[in-house]
């Protein structure tokens, strides 16, 4: 059987906020290592990958690998019934056709019990190749959310450019253009700071659909910082760490100049 108890139930609520608008349903693969889920949007532009390692849970048991085929709209509706400080337990039998969700209030005076029916999802798992990225940028997640929102007013494309010690976001459209630059800060240990790492100091600039970047920022509350990894002609990686034991990552195909 499978049983996973998450003291910080809000993590699951926040993760699903970052997933549900991009992927309507997905296979949540449960193994002794933890829970993982990946899915592409219907137009094959963005890949979403969630990993919740077993250490994230205060109790985790998975005797045999279990696949939970979940409709994300339904899953989200049920998770909205949980308070932010609820403890959430997921339970399923081996080869399940339903999953049990138990919410316990922080002071244990309320318990809510839900059953979600599972669906068979015909989906292939993709292998993600190791890539040497030309640039790795860490910025406060709220700042990235704000920049994506602000630049979306100018057009449907956001250009991300990394130069030595600086990351620049720009957009151009009929009403005008905008350019927002963030300089690398001195102390990179602070979550409020910006760090820019480059391989071989070669500037890198790529164009992306602002619509998708805005979808990704729905995961902002998962982490104080977001990491962007860029490589010419490769998908952008946007990563939100979930403490030390999980992550929500997005891969976004760049726009190609004609």
């Amino acid at each position: 059987m499978f049983e996973a108890r998450l003291l910080q139930g809000s993590i699951l609520k926040k993760a699903l906020e970052g997933i549900r608008e991009l992927i309507t349903s997905g296979n949540w693969e449960c193994s002794s290592a933890g829970i993982s889920m990946q899915g592409m949007d219907p137009s094959h532009v963005a890949l979403t990958v969630l990993m919740l390692q077993n250490d994230l849970f205060d109790q985790f048991r998975c005797d045999r690998n279990v696949t939970l085929g979940l409709n994300h709209a339904t899953f989200s509706k049920i998770l909205k019934c949980a308070a932010n400080d609820d403890i959430i337990t997921l339970k399923a039998e081996d080869q399940p056709d339903e999953c049990n969700l138990l919410f316990q209030s922080a002071n244990d005076d309320k318990t809510s019990d839900f059953i979600i029916k599972l669906t068979d999802i015909d989906q292939e798992t993709l292998g993600i190749p190791d890539t040497e990225y030309a640039a790795t940028v860490k910025v406060p997640s709220v700042e990235f959310q704000r920049i994506c929102r602000d630049l979306s007013q100018f057009g449907d494309t956001i250009i991300i450019s990394v130069k030595k010690g600086c990351v620049e976001f720009s957009g151009t459209g009929e009403i005008g253009s905008a350019k927002i630059a963030l300089k690398e800060s001195g102390n990179v240990d602070d979550d409020e700071k910006v760090s820019v790492e480059m391989d071989k100091d070669t500037p890198c600039s790529l164009s992306f659909a602002s619509r998708y970047l805005n979808y990704f920022t729905k995961a902002t509350s998962l982490s104080d910082t977001v990491t962007l990894q860029l490589c010419p002609e490769h998908p952008l990686v946007v990563s939100y760490d979930i403490g030390d034991n999980g992550s929500l990552k997005y891969y976004l195909a760049p726009k190609i100049e004609e």
């Binding site: 137009s43 963005a46 292939e124 993709l126 993600i128 998908p235 195909a253 004609e258």
Partner: peptide
């Protein structure tokens, strides 16, 4: 203008 690329060529089936 720029056209939207797709991810298919970047990832392999497991």
């Amino acid at each position: 203008g720029a056209t939207q690329g797709r991810l298919d060529s970047f990832f392999t089936l497991k």
